[in-house]
């Protein structure tokens, strides 16, 4: 579980990267975080990993109050989550196997378990043939799958991904998100920052838009290619989307045609969300 309560972050340079942000992500959720460049998305991720501290407000992750977390407790806390970054962050001097096994060695897992678990997660991400390769010998997509395998190898409650598809082919992006979705189906909470409109449109789900350090939109949207949401849920989503429409009208956008298909409406909303158009989803 992730909870931000009135969190602000001001860098020492004076930049206000996050401004009074409150957010709650429940166990088992899958959430996309979108927003334009420099909006504060990575800052939020850094907060959740306790790479930086909030200037004010309370950050709680997996039951740890990060404001009060002692330095020597940080390793213990980080073991409860997995991370996936745009730049992969694999240890170049270690093979695929060793990179993944390292997470289990850190927690002093029995050797027997490591020998069973690591090949299993490697096969989950379909990299069996690359077990003994070094990161330099892998493609971007393969590296990212290793990173995902590493993120899930110790069964974390939460996986945090900052633009995991940022450095790989768009077609491969879908595979990566499918993988994360699959992990989410097993109960792991997933928070994924992305820039890719198509991905969000395709998968739908909870979408959080951060613009200029503030959350300007936080709704569940049906994906175009997702299994359709149950009828009532979809209706609710539509109702919410329509609620937002009038505000858009006030600010001068063309009114959505009542005859527009559901897909088109969703497309429109997502487009405005991703464009970081805060009028589109003002709360």
């Amino acid at each position: 579980m992730v909870e931000l309560q009135n969190v602000s972050v001001t860098y020492s340079s004076g930049v206000d990267a996050l401004n009074n942000v409150s957010l709650k992500i429940n166990d088992g959720d899958f959430a996309f975080v979108v927003g334009s460049s420099g909006a504060g998305k990575s800052t939020m991720i850094k907060l959740l990993l306790k790479e930086i501290d909030a200037t004010s407000g309370v950050v709680t992750v997996n039951g740890y109050n990060l404001n009060k977390l002692k330095k020597r407790k940080i390793p213990e806390f980080r073991r409860t989550l997995g991370f996936v970054f745009q730049d992969f962050r694999l240890i170049p001097s270690m093979t695929v196997y060793e990179n993944i096994a390292f997470v289990l060695r850190v927690i002093d897992a029995p050797l027997k378990y490591i020998r069973k678990r690591v090949p299993y997660v490697i096969s989950l991400v379909g990299l069996h043939a690359k077990t003994n390769s070094y990161p330099d010998e892998l493609s971007g997509g393969e590296k990212q799958r290793v990173a995902i395998a590493r993120a899930l190898v110790n069964d974390p409650q939460l996986i945090i991904a900052d633009e995991p598809t940022g450095n790989i082919d768009p077609e491969l992006s879908y595979e990566i998100v499918e993988l994360l979705k699959g992990i989410n189906d097993q109960g792991t909470t997933i928070l994924m920052v992305t820039h890719e409109h198509d991905l969000v449109r395709h998968f739908g789900g909870r979408i959080i838009n951060i613009t200029d350090g503030e959350i300007v939109f936080d709704e569940i949207i049906a994906g175009t290619n997702d299994e359709p949401l149950p009828e009532e849920e979809l209706a609710q989503t539509m109702a919410k989307a329509e609620e937002n429409q009038p505000q858009e009208n006030e600010s001068g956008s063309a009114p959505a045609s009542p005859q527009s298909t559901e897909d088109a409406l969703i497309d429109e909303v997502i487009a405005s969300i991703i464009a970081g158009n805060d009028q589109g989803g003002a709360e």
Partner: peptide
Amino acid sequence: REEIMIMKYVGATNAF
């Protein structure tokens, strides 16, 4: 340093 940073991210203690 990169390697050390990654190790810290996956929850390795300083002693480790």
